[in-house]
Nucleic acid binder design. Sequence first.
DNA 1: CGTGGGGATTCTAGAATCCCCACGGTGCCCTAGT
Length: 498
Amino acid sequence: MDKLHQALRRHFGYSSFKKGQETIMKSVLEGRDTVAMLPTGGGKSLCYQLPGFLTDGTVLIVSPLLSLMEDQVQQLKMRGEKRTAAYNSVLTYQERDYILKQLHRLKFLYISPEALQSEQIIKRLQTIKVSLFVVDEAHCISQWGHDFRPDYSKLGEIKALLGNPPTLALTATATEATLKDISQMLGLAEASYFIYSVDRPNIALHIENLRDTAAKTERLIELVRKLQGPGLVYCPTRKWTEELAERLTEETRLRTGFYHGGMESGDRMLIQQQFIRNQLDAVCCTNAFGMGVDKPDVRYVIHFNLPQTAEAYMQEIGRAGRDGQQSISILLKAPGDEGIQEQLIQTEALSQHDIDFLYEKLADVKDERALRDILQQSGLSETQARHFVHLYLKVHHLGDDGRELIYREMDSRKHLKLKKMAGFASITESEGCFRRGLLAYFNEELKPRKNSGAACCTYCGLDLDAYETKGDRPFMNELTAWEEELDAIFAAGRDRLC
DNA sequence: CGTGGGGATTCTAGAATCCCCACGGTGCCCTAGT
């Protein structure tokens, strides 16, 4: 048995690797920069955890969500690896100080791109050996780094400040253009690429065209009532998640919840936990729900509106059928769906006129905080202000006025988003196999389907009845929920005592 | 594009109606002053 297999057995208790894992790890262990795309549930974290055990130094993992970091830290600790920590705003000052002092003893350190901007932590990281620089959910670099979370675009600089340690970028869904963007932003000129199919053959792809929103609502109720759960319903706005959850509860009597970014973090955790523990049959959610929700048996994902991009669609339907069992994704369309999305993109970008106005207001302000305060008072949203400040500081650094560059950047971001949106809309409208069209967007060819039991898509023919509930289903039953709750409390208590 | 909050207007002194405008989705971050 070779070193990798031995370590796999010793640290994780597995006897074999999943597809792709071994080649990716070998690349990492040879010290090469590596970009890897593995399907959801393909065991991405193992790709840096195992090499971490086999090399000296600390593995630094950039992660997009606090909850994701906490989950990973907990899992590693449960496996017996105590030299693991997450550095973020959840910690108290003392806890943070402790981590900074103990940095050289850590095997795995999880951190957000924002926390990684702190001079203090960079200075400390420069004194230790970073054996591997990992960017988890690396598509966030491309998806968010340009505007929503600009700190993602600075990871390349930080990697350089740390002496360019070997780097591993991991994602489940990316087009060729996104992968290029990731490598460019991280400064990976000569990375090795390991790209596996984005296709999920066990998820049937269904599209239904309906007259209007009212018709979609009726159809949704009918579907949720009939389909084998549990399932997710992706909604376009926060308000829709709440309204549809209420309608579904009334009309189907199933246990339905809602989830969006405007909720208290405690409520968000509760819904996630209830969904994972099968205490909810369906969750109506915005695109906030999903990353880090590792539930194997989600049976359906319904989209109440067109997602903004094909990447978003793939990611969201990918939350179904991680156990490999038959699952279905249903896209409900109605004329005018794109209008709302398009308007969102249009209003988010600043016009030349806005930019001129801001330039006059800012004149000689140099301090970043003062900049942001003035921008907030100008009626910009927080996201708009952050995006502008990011570009403003970047072009000022170059020494000229930079206005032209900002015009162009804003405009090209907007057009790129509109293009992606129109691209996905046209895939859903074109004649022919939907899966083929979708895979073509990711530069993939549809291979002959081995598993003849799995349906492909609406065009190729699928039988919705096959996805209906079989036998009795657990209707709203407070006693069951109460007993499960108690079990969970006892289980948690036992863990603590051990 | 579609919706909803809020201010202004209306006909006749407090509520009904209108119109305009803002908003819509994704998450990190101790900022400062109690």
